Amino acid sequence: MKKNKQRPAKFILIAALVILILPVLTGKTYLYKAVVYNFAGIDDYTIFDNHTIPATQPVPWRFSAGYGKAKIPDTLEQYLRTLKSIGLLVVQNRQIVVEKYWEGYSDSSLSNSFSVAKSISGLLTGAAIHEGKIGSVNDPVGKYLPEFAEGEKAKVKIVDLLTMSSGSDWNESYANPFSVTTELYYGSDVYKTATGVNIVKAPGTCHSYKSGDTQLLGLVVEKATGKSLSAYAAEKLWLPLGAEHDALWSTDKQGGHEKAYCCFNSNARDFARIGQLMLDSGKINGVPVIDSAYFHNSVTPCLIPDEDNKPCNYYGYQWWIIPDQQSIFYARGILGQYIICIPALDMVVVRLGKKRDEKINNVPIEVNKLIAWAQTLK
């Protein structure tokens, strides 16, 4: 009996040792961090290394005459609380109209925007094209990244990354700890992870959302400009936009590459400046940051067949589009981070939080609710 009692304990010990040693044997040591932190959160910049994007010449937003008078309906506020919202901001005609924060966050609090960073990386790609650092969207990725210079990878163009149609075998799984997406988030070598894909479909023929495509864009911008994404963002966005607070862009390691697809950390007011830039057709104070054609394609459906073999009517160049209201476009993060642009109202709506609702027709429910409410403010 004594021998039988010892056997389960021995098996448990062996299993524990295997779990501890397996990441080392497989080279996936990022799993230790993934297990410790379990799920991604809006304060994850505190567990990563970061590059700072300084706010060197702040230009505060003006407040509308009606600031503080427009109320968030009780039903909408309760709904937003249910989704663990931390911030809601409405800017119209370049003035703050509505502003509300929850859970101890404020107008200066940093939080992770997750895939909103994709839209920012898309803007930086356009900026590099505008100033001639990148030839055009039709440049092959291999012109900048040697890993894409031969074979099927040589067929991938920058436009294929912008429209999420690279044709790579990237596994966009957030729940699987062994997926490349988890490795990209918790790992320490985003260059190796992003360039290690294989091309399994003809580039430009199938839209399939892949964080790896945006990470490759970031690496291309770095190579083309000779600057880190943070330094380039400071030059092209944060300084000319008059951001009020420093932002942080999380990196894979100290002094490493930014996570271009994710992890741009800022606050609601400064995120709204990105939206205002897009309302102004990619210009800041009348000066183009991106070309007019690039702006147009950013907010126009790419119409590449998606995984359901339907024309993609909801995605452009790293920006999402409302299918039945195609004049409205937005940046979005996985936990419900949004920069919503409503050109007809000269309005930007920013929502930050910890949860996202279900999607209908590829649009999160709360996005439609926020748009419907915002349209009553006109």
Rank of each mutant, 00 (worst) to 15 (best):
K3T: 10
P8E: 00
A15E: 14
A16C: 15
L20K: 07
P23S: 11
G27M: 14
T29M: 04
Y30K: 10
V36Y: 14
F39A: 10
G41W: 11
I42A: 09
Y45T: 09
I47V: 13
D49H: 12
H51D: 13
H51Y: 12
P54E: 05
T56K: 05
F63I: 01
P73A: 04
D74G: 05
T75W: 11
L80W: 04
L83P: 11
L83G: 12
K84N: 15
S85V: 15
G87Y: 13
V91D: 03
N93G: 13
S106E: 09
D107I: 01
S119I: 09
I120Q: 09
S121W: 13
S136F: 09
L145W: 06
P146D: 13
E152N: 08
I158S: 04
L162Y: 10
T163R: 13
M164H: 10
Y174L: 08
N176C: 07
P177Q: 11
P177F: 08
S179C: 03
S179M: 12
Y185H: 15
Y185K: 12
D189H: 15
K192C: 12
T193E: 14
T195G: 09
G196R: 12
G196H: 14
I199T: 07
A202G: 14
Y209V: 15
K210V: 03
D213P: 03
L216C: 00
L217T: 05
K227L: 09
L229T: 06
L229S: 03
S230D: 00
Y232R: 04
A233N: 04
A234F: 00
L237I: 00
W238R: 01
P240C: 04
W249R: 06
Q254R: 15
Q254L: 12
H257K: 07
H257T: 10
K259N: 01
C262S: 02
C263K: 02
D270N: 02
G275Y: 08
S281G: 06
S281A: 06
G282L: 08
V287D: 08
Y294G: 00
Y294D: 00
N297R: 15
V299C: 10
P305V: 00
D306Y: 14
D306H: 08
N313D: 15
Y315H: 12
P323W: 13
Q326K: 07
Q326F: 07
S327G: 11
S327C: 08
L335G: 01
I342H: 02
A344I: 07
V348F: 04
R351P: 08
L352D: 14
G353N: 08
G353M: 06
R356F: 10
I360C: 03
N362I: 02
P364F: 06
K378Q: 10
K378V: 04
